[in-house]
C-alpha cells in the first residue's frame, strides 16, 4: 500500500470534526473522498500532504514517494509568468527545467501561453497551469482538493479527461477530494464516503466499472442514485448488485 491512514482524527478547537478514519490507497489507484461540504474531506487531504500536522492517528506514506498537490484554486504566483510558475517546484538547471515545463504545458494544452501572466488567464487555463506545475515535479502521489469545482461544466469535463489521460500515461496514485458525485464516479476506482458528526468513513466503495466510462451510462446513473441515497442516510436503497464493498464501516 502506498498510503495508509489509521484512525485519523482532527479537532478544531473543542469541536471534533473527524474521527477514526481508516483507509489505504494502492499504487496507481484513483480514490475519491466524497462528502458534503464541511465534512472534513479536505482536512484528510491536508493531513496527507503534510500541510496540517495537528491531526490524531497516523499516516504512513511509502518511503521516497513524492507528493504533488493541486488546490481548489490555481494559486499561481501572480508575479511569475506561466512558464516560471510551472518550473516553481523544480531545482537545478534553469534551461533543463524550462524545457521540461514546456513539455507539461504542452500536455495540458497551454504551449502558447508560457509568456502570459496569471491575470491574463481564464479560470480553466490557470487551473491547467496549476496541474502542469504539480505534474512537472513528477509526483508519485497526486493529491487534488476539489480541483475543478470552480470551473464551468465543459471545462470541468475537459480537465477530468486530461487527468485520466495523464493517469493513463504515468499511473500516478491519485487521491481526489470532491463533493461532486458525478466526478467521483467518473474518475475513481474507489469512493470513500465521509459522513456524520464528527465525520467518520461511512463507506469504502469499489466502483467496478471499466474505463473509458460513459458519462451518461445507466450503470453510472444507478450508482449516482445509490450514492445520493447513502448521503441522505437511506441505507436501505443500497443496491448490492452494483457495488463491491471493500470495507464497510457504517
Amino acid at each position: 500500500m502506498t498510503v495508509r491512514v489509521q484512525s485519523l482524527g482532527r479537532c478544531f478547537g473543542e469541536k471534533q470534526v473527524l474521527q477514526g478514519v481508516d483507509f489505504s490507497v494502492g499504487q496507481g489507484e484513483i480514490v475519491s473522498l466524497l462528502g458534503t461540504s464541511g465534512c472534513g474531506k479536505s482536512t484528510v487531504l491536508r493531513a496527507l500532504a503534510g500541510l496540517d500536522k495537528e491531526y490524531e492517528g497516523s499516516i504512513t506514506i511509502e518511503l521516497g514517494q513524492r507528493i504533488g498537490f493541486i488546490f481548489q484554486e490555481p494559486r499561481l504566483l501572480p508575479w511569475k509568468t506561466v512558464l516560471a510558475n510551472t518550473t516553481f517546484g523544480l531545482k537545478g538547471d534553469k534551461r533543463l527545467n524550462e524545457e521540461k515545463a514546456r513539455r507539461y504545458l504542452e500536455l495540458v494544452g497551454l504551449k502558447e501561453a508560457e509568456k502570459l501572466y496569471p491575470r491574463e488567464l481564464s479560470g480553466g487555463m490557470a487551473q491547467r497551469v496549476a496541474i502542469a506545475r504539480a505534474l512537472v515535479t513528477e509526483p508519485d502521489i497526486l493529491l487534488l482538493d476539489e480541483p475543478f469545482s470552480a470551473l464551468d461544466a465543459f471545462t470541468k469535463m475537459q480537465l477530468q479527461e486530461l487527468l485520466l489521460k495523464i493517469w493513463g500515461e504515468i499511473r500516478t496514485t491519485i487521491v481526489l477530494v470532491t463533493h461532486d458525485i458525478d466526478e467521483a464516479l467518473y474518475l475513481s476506482d474507489r469512493v470513500l464516503l465521509l459522513q456524520g458528526k464528527p465525520s467518520t468513513l461511512a463507506k469504502d466503495l469499489k466502483i467496478a466499472l471499466s474505463r473509458p466510462r460513459s458519462r451518461g451510462s445507466a450503470s453510472l446513473g444507478k450508482w449516482k442514485e445509490d450514492l445520493l441515497n447513502l448521503l441522505e442516510g437511506k441505507d436501505t436503497a443500497y443496491d448490492y448488485s452494483l457495488v463491491t464493498e471493500v470495507g464497510q464501516k457504517a
Binding site: 500532504a49 500541510l51 498537490f69 488546490f71 484554486e73 494559486r75 504566483l77 516553481f88 517546484g89 515535479t137
Partner: peptide, 11 residues
C-alpha cells in the same frame, strides 16, 4: 496564506 502553502508544498 494560500501562496505560502504553495511554497511549503514545494518544500
Amino acid at each position: 496564506r494560500k501562496l505560502i502553502e504553495v511554497g511549503r508544498m514545494y518544500g
